[in-house]
Design a protein around this nucleic acid. Structure first.
Lengths: 184, 184
DNA sequence: CCTTCCATGTAACCGGTTACATGATTGC
DNA sequence: GCAATCATGTAACCGGTTACATGGAAGG
């Protein structure tokens, strides 16, 4: 059985603990969103689909008159997420607009190209700030466990990114100065 | 006018120099693929679409009896890619299966979790090797210009990734040893 | 009372991948 | 003669986002 991307996060989040579709969405937004997002438009249909396939079970658990359906993994569902976890693939697909801009930056003036690098640095910095704030809170789960390890991966990556951009900026500025001097 | 992801690479590649759809595809596969891919199924329809919109112009340029259509940017097309380059966004959307696995790794035994980290390290290493090979060749364009700067970004990132994984592996192994000892 | 949060859903749309089909040219 | 490369395309499919609609509960 093939699991879509959304199916995987849904299963994973339910493996951590049973929850509603709404809860899955908010948890994803607070945690995996940086490398794996999901929208209501996929989550709710997927939950029903997974239930039909027997990977999750639903149980109505309303808050007063407010309807709520809590889903939990069945044994088959747990087996499916376990199988995925130890499966060989670790694919990364990404679309990084900033990198593509940088790739084509020879089309720009030196000034505009430098602005691109600065924009990228502030992008890394923004992400870094957001992740550090999560870390200062209780972290994804609070100081231990793999969610926090992944958080530290994000922090480390963006720290590296800020440094890389700073270095490049320095080089570009120096090159520009040298070119100017040599022209005199 | 809104440009799709494919439209952007197509325009960018044509800005570097006029080429066929086939050439665009092979160039993308050799260069931007790591952060921005494109398939024939999008490129050819997009070329026609861009021609209708007046952003590119086509000229037949067969090799013997083998048909070939070479596209080049019009002034409007050049203006469009320039506008995109200096536009404010620098969005990154990604799906990283390895990170998601790591996020859920608490569901696994310590042994299997460690295997996950090792797999990630070898993934970083593989990418690193590939990029270094490109660098040892003539680089994306040959030792200078922004394509090579982007290449160095990729190399730096994966070097960082390998280091991060190694550090984590060391910590996990040590933790496992300590836990074992304490249990005695 | 009003805003924010909890909670569930759907329809339209879109961008992209996969798989397939076809055929000429080049180099071994 | 055969394999690899050049070259162009399409149809089916799919996964995902956006925008919208609805309404109860909690807290100031």
């Amino acid at each position: 059985m093939k699991l879509s991307g959304t199916a995987i996060v849904v299963l994973g989040m339910l493996a951590l603990r049973p929850r509603s579709g709404y809860d899955i969405k908010t948890t994803v937004d607070r945690t995996t969103r940086f490398f794996w997002s999901a929208s209501y438009g996929q989550i709710y249909p997927e939950l029903r689909h997974l239930e039909n396939a027997g990977l999750v079970a639903s149980r109505s658990s309303p808050n007063g008159a407010r309807a709520r359906t809590v889903y939990s993994l069945t044994e088959t569902g747990r087996a499916a997420i376990d199988a995925w976890l130890i499966s060989p693939g670790y694919g990364v697909t990404m679309r990084d607009e900033g990198l593509l801009k940088l790739f084509f930056a020879d089309l720009l003036s030196g000034h505009d190209a430098l602005a691109l690098v600065r924009a990228r640095r502030s992008g890394h910095q923004l992400n870094l700030d957001r992740l550090r704030e999560i870390e200062r809170g209780e972290g994804f789960v609070g100081g231990h466990g793999f969610p926090d390890i992944v958080l530290s991966y994000g922090i480390g990556f963006h720290e590296w990114g800020v440094r890389w951009c700073s270095d490049l900026e320095r080089r570009l500025v120096e090159d520009a100065r040298r070119t100017k001097r040599d022209r005199r």
